[in-house]
Design a protein around this nucleic acid. Sequence first.
DNA 1: AATTATTTATAGCCTAACCTAACTTTAATT
DNA 2: AATTAAAGTTAGGTTAGGCTATAAATAATT
Lengths: 150, 150
Amino acid sequence: MAAIVSTKADTPRGTRAQEDYLEQILSLIEKKGYARVVDIAKNLNIAQASVTGMIQRMDAEDLVSYEKYRGVILTSEGEKIARAIINRHESLTKFFKLFGLYDDTIYEDIEGIEHHMSPPTLATIQALTKELERQPALLDRVKSKVFQAT
Amino acid sequence: MAAIVSTKADTPRGTRAQEDYLEQILSLIEKKGYARVVDIAKNLNIAQASVTGMIQRMDAEDLVSYEKYRGVILTSEGEKIARAIINRHESLTKFFKLFGLYDDTIYEDIEGIEHHMSPPTLATIQALTKELERQPALLDRVKSKVFQAT
DNA sequence: AATTATTTATAGCCTAACCTAACTTTAATT
DNA sequence: AATTAAAGTTAGGTTAGGCTATAAATAATT
């Protein structure tokens, strides 16, 4: 069951920062049912005013739908991007957890690299993760070389 | 021989863009003996004027040493960063090459992620690469799942 | 219902990192 | 040595994505 992966970036794109916003917005909506500016700001460590500004730009670019003083919701385009980035985030987390790295280390690294990983490369990491899950001995050898256990 | 890896980011830092410049400058110096503005610009796909400007900022920040109309050289700080980023680049290339991804795919992804990978995570990738080199059967299984051979 | 607190929005500002167009300096060629 | 070509610099401008301070709108509390 080979996953045929195209070369052309089939990944929908916003900027790096926009991907962060979309990821947060979707995760807030799924967790609380709505996404408030104040929570987005808190989670991304950004000033409220900056969030308002960005959301207005993202509304103009049809990534979210927004009306003043009402909440923010995702357009289908925005949701597609959000799901892709969340998928990347989860896959990478699963992968790095195999090696016993600190959660903080994992989180920070992924925060940076998730925005830059193409579908084929991600698919490779996913496939590799599956194989490695069946190789505890190999994993132990790797872990013993890098001593940074959780 | 466990590589003990500290948590504190022992990675010297410039900005993302500065790391790209430093990487280019060092690689030009090693290849041709000197780094000209025009070549840096060409390799990074950036206008000459932008390179001049950035180099002036990097001179002020002691990452490079520069005199008008003369060439650019790296300070020891700049060289340290450059070597770190080149090391990351090479390690990641080696890793992704294991799986038969397209060279272009590899190059683009690494260009993005190399700026965001911590020393512990990089050390893990390096250790994993070594182990996987001895596991052709496992690699074949991964490759067969992701069909994007070179 | 009036007041207070919370949340959003606006205005104005800043920095990084790019750009083009025009000018200057150095290098190469006749 | 004079001219042309190439490389480098300066000036001025743009855009993304932040910031603070202030004002307006909504929500909560007395």
